[in-house]
Amino acid sequence: MNDPNTDSFSIYGEQITSRLLIGSALYPSPAVMAESIVASGADIVTVSLRRQQSVSAGDDFWQFIKDTGLKVLPNTAGCHSVKEAVTLAQMCREVFSTNWIKLELIGDEYNLQPDPFALLEATKILINDGFQVLPYCTDDLVLCQRLADLGCEVLMPWGSPIGTGKGLLNQYNLKTIRERLPDMTLIVDAGLGLPSHACQALELGYDAVLLNSAIAGAGCPVTMSHAFKAAVNAGRFAYTAKAMPEKEVAAPSTPTMGMPFWHQT
């Protein structure tokens, strides 16, 4: 039996145990953020870069993240062009000392949908520049295949638009990507709202989920963090256990042999 507490998946050769990647934004306070991150059991926390404002605020945040000892995954959130994303990725690499980049390139302001065309272009540039790209993408099979062709070893299709909490809107698409790219590390990123959504992603065979709002926006983020930790473990257990085949017709579980009063009424 695979124990979700000890089995692992790979992100560009690094073995990762926790199947929950957690964001560091939107928490009601730094203390709640810190406690939620610890409660999640995550190995990886997402971070970003913004214009330097004051000496203290960002500095405290970064010091906490460093003290956790967790791996950091910087993002290019908010970028709308290839040039912006590439420049921000280069700046992230220098500050965070990692080749990992969560490549986020927004194509539409309304639903914050990734721009698939710009994503491919930026991915190509960054991989040629030595980056290990984790593209945030839509659940489009052909886009995922093209990203794989460029050399991506991790893909992060959305469950639904960022911050909506709607869960996995198109399980068929996500399942197809899993089946067509069996060796790819796949992480559902964005749109999850409930632990059951995370569990479903793992049940589909996804290696992990990345989420932020679902925990940070909960009434009690720390408790929700525990819930998501349990959910990804449950989903992983279920995937490795292989679910029973779904049937169209009811089948009794209690034996009918020896049933008293059999057809007497």
């Binding site: 964001g23 560091s24 934004a25 939107l26 928490y27 953020m33 997402t46 971070v47 970003s48 870069l49 913004r50 214009r51 330097q52 960002g58 500095d59 945040f61 970064w62 993240i65 910087p74 993002n75 959130a77 921000l88 700046m91 500050v95 965070f96 960022i162 932020n212 709002s213």
Partner: peptide
Amino acid sequence: VELLSPIQGG
């Protein structure tokens, strides 16, 4: 000139 520092991210 853009001068950027770490901040929370999702």
